[in-house]
Amino acid sequence: MSDKSVESRRVRVWDAPTRLAHWAIASLFGFCWWSAKSDHMQWHRIAGYGLLGVVLFRLCWGFLGGSTARFANFVRSPIATWRYASKLFARDRDRSSKPIGHNPLGGWSILAMLGLLLAQTVFGLFSVDVDGVVSGPWAKWVRFETGRRFAHLHDANFHLLLILIGLHLSAITFYRLARKESLVPAMIHGYKTDVSTEAPPSFVPWWRAALLAAAVCLVVVYITQAKL
């Protein structure tokens, strides 16, 4: 690794769709939580549709987006992940080994997070409340008891998501305190400093994200308006 490749300079790491999807997921999840707790179920449903759309977008963006957003570039083998994890607490860290995008542990965490969020929204689509009055748009395809089971799965999965979010926040704090790396600003403005620039990330044109967003909107509208 040459000195030039690890020189301290600002490198664009995250594209706008990835950042927008991240913050949209964070805010919609918070809003869904509040609306469920305060029994604003109409708002909860709308925010849930939004969350489903953003999760679908992010999943597709993992195949169509920029290099740091693609699953192929950040989901590593279990052996590579273990190798990375075993050096997590090492004092003599090599700057050049710092990943530009998601690190291997973060990659698996993203897969888990997106998987649980997708499951959460699908459970919500089938959920029925205890009175049979409020339900998701696909609840009409299941019996009352099945809809109630989905509601309980929705609740259990929510707690799993809380645990995962707790781990995510703990990891951010750990990187800030133990490794002196601020991950949050990069997710806001998209740039990182002090990273290896040997293979700078590549990005895709904005219209690809716009087309994908439009397609996802159509899918979500179709899902929510599904007729028997």
């Binding site: 029925v128 409340d129 009175d131 049979g132 009055v133 339900s135 609840a139 009352f144 809809g147």
Partner: peptide
């Protein structure tokens, strides 16, 4: 009551 309400809504 909930089961019947859901059936009616469906």
């Amino acid at each position: 009551l909930g089961r019947t309400a859901k059936s009616l809504r469906d």
